[in-house]
C-alpha cells in the first residue's frame, strides 16, 4: 500500500479553486458571537501558520471553537478581529479553493454515490470527462469501487464519509478542511479511514486542517497538533509530532514519538480541564 508522493493526474485545466497546496495563516484572530442575552467569545488571540502541504490537527475540549476556526478559513464565518489568509489572500467571503468535510456526510439522498461526488464538478462547471476520470480515481483510492450507483441510505457510515471525502477532493483543492470527519464512525472503521486519509494526503499533497476529538487520530495523522483551551478558545500549545509522512497504523501507534506526543497532549488537555 505504499504510494509515492506524486500527482497522479495531469492538473485539471481552468477549474476555479484548483491548484497546488496552499498555506493558511491566522494572525491574532478573535471571534465574538453577539446574542440578545450575552456576548460569547468563541476564539481569542489565535495565531497559526500552516505551511503548504502540511497536515495540521486541532484538538481541544468541546466548545473551544475548533469548528469555528475551520469556518473562518473557509470564509463561512468572518473574524471579529485579526487576519485570516489562505494561499496568501485575505479571506473575506466563502472560499472556493477548499474542500470541506463535515462530521455528517451531508450527502444528497436522491443522488447515487458517484453523482454526489460529481455535484462538485457540476457546480464548478468542470469538464465532464475530466471530472469523471478524477472521480473514478478517487473512488478507487478510497475503496468505493462497486458502490458508485448506491444511494446514501444503502451505504454504511464509513462509506458515506468516503463519498463526502471524494466530493471534497474532486476539484483538487489546495486546502482540505475536515471537521471531525470520523467522529460518528465505529473504532475499526475509524482506524481504516485514518490509514486511508494518510495515504490520500501523501498522494494528493494537499494541505489538511483536521479538527478531531481523538488524540491518537491527531497524532497518527498530523505533522503538527494544535491543542486548544476551552472557551474562549486559544492555542495552548502546538506540538511537532516528528513522525515520517508515511505511517503504518499499528507500527506508528507503538513508536516512542507517538506515545510521547499523545501523552503530552493528554496532559495538556487534562491540565486545561482541571484548571477549568
Amino acid at each position: 500500500m505504499t504510494m509515492p508522493k506524486q500527482q497522479t493526474t495531469p492538473r485539471v485545466p481552468a477549474v476555479a479553486g484548483a491548484g497546488p497546496a496552499a498555506g493558511v495563516r491566522l494572525t491574532d484572530v478573535a471571534v465574538r458571537f453577539r446574542s440578545k442575552k450575552r456576548d460569547v467569545t468563541a476564539l481569542s488571540d489565535v495565531s497559526l501558520d500552516v505551511a503548504p502541504g502540511e497536515f495540521v490537527a486541532i484538538v481541544g475540549p468541546s466548545g473551544c471553537g475548533k469548528s469555528t476556526l475551520l469556518k473562518l478559513v473557509a470564509g463561512l464565518l468572518t473574524a471579529s478581529s485579526g487576519d485570516v489568509l489562505l494561499g496568501g489572500e485575505r479571506v473575506t467571503g466563502p472560499r472556493h479553493d477548499i474542500g470541506y468535510v463535515f462530521q455528517r456526510a451531508a450527502l444528497l439522498e436522491w443522488r447515487s454515490a458517484l453523482r454526489n461526488i460529481l455535484l462538485q464538478a457540476e457546480i464548478r462547471r468542470m469538464e465532464p470527462a475530466v471530472a469523471r476520470a478524477r472521480a473514478d480515481e478517487l473512488i478507487r483510492m478510497t475503496g468505493l469501487g462497486g458502490f458508485e450507483d448506491a444511494y446514501p441510505h444503502e451505504l454504511s457510515g464509513g462509506m458515506q464519509q468516503r463519498v463526502a471525502l471524494c466530493r471534497a477532493l474532486l476539484h483538487e483543492p489546495p486546502v482540505l478542511l475536515m471537521d471531525e470527519p470520523f467522529g460518528a464512525l465505529d473504532a475499526l472503521t475509524r482506524e481504516q479511514m485514518n490509514t486511508e486519509l494518510n495515504r490520500i494526503w501523501r498522494t494528493t499533497g494537499t494541505t489538511v486542517l483536521l479538527v478531531t476529538h481523538s488524540i491518537s487520530e491527531a497524532v497518527y495523522l498530523a505533522d503538527r497538533v494544535v491543542v486548544m483551551s476551552p472557551r474562549p478558545g486559544t492555542v495552548t500549545e502546538i506540538i511537532e509530532v516528528g513522525l515520517p509522512a508515511e505511517r503504518d497504523y499499528s507500527e506508528t501507534l507503538g513508536r516512542p514519538e507517538f506515545r510521547a506526543a499523545a501523552a503530552h497532549i493528554r496532559d495538556l488537555l487534562g491540565a486545561v480541564s482541571a484548571h477549568d
Binding site: A16, G17, K71, A74, G75, L76, P94, R95, H96, I98, G99, Y100, F102, R104, A106, L108, L119, Q120, I123, R124
Partner: peptide, 14 residues
C-alpha cells in the same frame, strides 16, 4: 434543508 449542505454549496461557489 441541511444547513451544512448549504455551507458546502457556498464553498463550491454555487
Amino acid at each position: 434543508v441541511d444547513p451544512e449542505m448549504l455551507q458546502l454549496s457556498a464553498t463550491m461557489g454555487a
